[in-house]
Design a protein around this nucleic acid. Structure first.
Lengths: 320, 320
DNA sequence: CTACATTACTGACACGCGCAACTGACGCGC
DNA sequence: GCGCGTCAGTTGCGCGTGTCAGTAATGTAG
């Protein structure tokens, strides 16, 4: 390519990288760009990664629990948002029982995003492999490295909505799958906070497993409680639909006997019987925030303020 | 590291790669391996990619339509299956309106997997970028490069099940979203084939949009047809749930007035009212087949036979 | 003792890029 | 004419690996 432009490789490199304090006259600059266009030149990322020590790839480690449409949407938006910042976004589903270290060794990513925080050994290996930036989306128990997304907001909004339509005794449908604990914890915490602020008693927490019978015990207990629970915040829409199935099995009505509100706004919730009231999270905003935070951190700047808090919306339907 | 072992880099390289026809005496071999262990040596994938021209990464381009749990499961199994073959699997959600070529330029993957076939320009760019193997999972219209997964089988099983329980006039709930056309086409084709073989009339196809009212027109037409359609195969479970909602809106019953069968076995189908009969695909087997085919193709061997045909199961519930 | 083969290993290059240091050429002031 | 500064661009190195060709040392046959 330098040959084609009749210049040296260095000059070409300076032009293409817009190297500051390297004055290149306009004619030469255009000559290089014309040659690049004619040859369809694309810099080899492998070589760049080798010499710079890191690639422009941002790696997201997917959790091992089944991913729903909200995670899917987050992926899509992260991809666009990071592309705007000049990064290439890829996701890797961690295969059970296999060390994840092989992945970043093969990619030398600029940053690694995880859902939950990594073990000490794994994060040590990460640093050894030359990855400088690792961010966890949830569970900032370990220190300031986590993004600390406003996940409690979903719980708060659920509780506030139920309170606004007159419910005073709330239940919380906790996911039976232990793998989503890091997600469920802050949501329940948000419900607790809202209850406290609104002067309501603590929510009655029951685990709910997915499947037709997963919620029967929980529903029976909520309805039989004294005073009875009249509104339930579910960990997500799937759990919410399970709770509604449990109520039907008892021959009772949603929302008459028990109101239910979910999180995620999955498609099935719009066509269930009754249709499901839910809290939707604007994954595009979340993705933009994450992308911004990552590129600031890589550039060494302080990270911007907390993500906007108005990214949650209550989708009002029949169930609550 | 070569210094630490007191040998040259070449010798070390030969030992670590087990280069055939390069005889290395056992003592030296052990000396190298001891040094590697002591230094915690990990070969740099970036350098290997630079010199060999391709990395050990297999890239999956996610489609731009929302991915459901079945794609999620496929990702997870692909990750494990490809890791067994020595590859690193990553997925990239293609951001709308952005050229995908930037992605493989940044990764130089050993293979690229797509859902639908690429345009001519994009596949040309792919080859220019040095990616030798591109496989499309569906839509083998263009030639032998596609995997040609037995997607018709899902449609066949749906129709066969409905026929087995006595339905003779079938409908097909076609997804209104044009982006999933490549998926829907073979499934409908499978239904058509099964009808022809069983001596049933052609299925009555109606588009169904997701959402509470998406199926009302279709359901009205199926029920009013002469003779009436009594069983509907839906493109997937979400469409199936929408059809069931449409039937409820008409004040009619599932499966009494109209039986419905879906595809995917999503969690919401197990707790819907009535619960949803569906066809499940064993994504683990699919993933193993894909991984096997990729590694054979890369090794230059002919690809193994068609994937096993018994990877589909009918999950029998109330709706059909 | 010489000619040749085998063993055990090393030197050097290429992959494509970024960057520091260097080189001619030209203009300007004294 | 000499020194200095600026412009326009080049040479060369290093990143870490895979691999071909080569080469001392040792063994073997005639």
């Amino acid at each position: 390519m330098a040959r084609h432009a009749g210049l040296s490789r260095a000059t070409v490199s300076y032009v293409l990288n817009n190297t500051p304090h390297q004055v290149i006259p306009e004619p030469t600059r255009q000559r290089v760009q014309k040659a690049a266009a004619e040859l369809g030149y694309v810099p080899s990322a492998a070589a760049r990664a080798l010499s710079s020590g890191r690639s422009d790839v941002v790696l997201l480690l997917l959790p091992d629990w089944p991913i729903g449409p909200s995670v899917g949407a987050l992926l899509e938006h992260l991809s666009t948002a990071l592309a705007d910042q000049g990064f290439t976004f890829v996701a890797h589903p961690r295969s059970a029982g296999r060390p994840v270290s092989e992945v970043w060794k093969a990619l030398t990513p600029a940053a690694v995003i995880t859902f939950e925080e990594l073990d000490d050994i794994e994060s040590a290996r990460l640093r050894t492999a030359g990855v400088e930036l690792a961010v966890a989306l949830f569970g900032g128990s370990r220190g300031g490295r986590a993004m600390d997304l406003p996940e409690q907001r979903t719980g708060r909004l659920q509780a506030e909505h139920l309170a606004a339509v007159g419910h005073r005794h709330l239940g919380y449908a906790w996911p039976a799958d232990p793998r989503v604990l890091a997600f469920a914890q802050p949501r329940l915490e948000g419900v607790r906070q809202a209850c406290a602020e609104l002067g309501l008693p603590e929510p009655v927490v029951h685990p709910v497993a997915l499947g037709p019978d997963g919620a029967t015990a929980a529903v029976a207990d909520w309805l039989a409680a004294e005073p009875a629970v009249t509104g339930v915040c579910a960990y997500n829409d799937e759990v919410a639909l399970t709770v509604m199935a449990g109520v039907r099995r008892q021959g009772r009505q949603v929302p008459g006997d028990l109101a239910v509100i979910g999180v995620d706004n999955i498609a099935a919730g719009a066509v269930s019987w009754p249709t499901l009231t839910t809290v939707e999270v604007d994954q595009a905003s979340v993705a933009r925030y994450i992308a911004g935070a990552i590129s600031s951190k890589i550039a060494g700047e302080p990270l911007p303020g907390r993500p906007a808090s108005d990214i949650h919306t209550v989708i009002l339907r029949e169930s609550a």
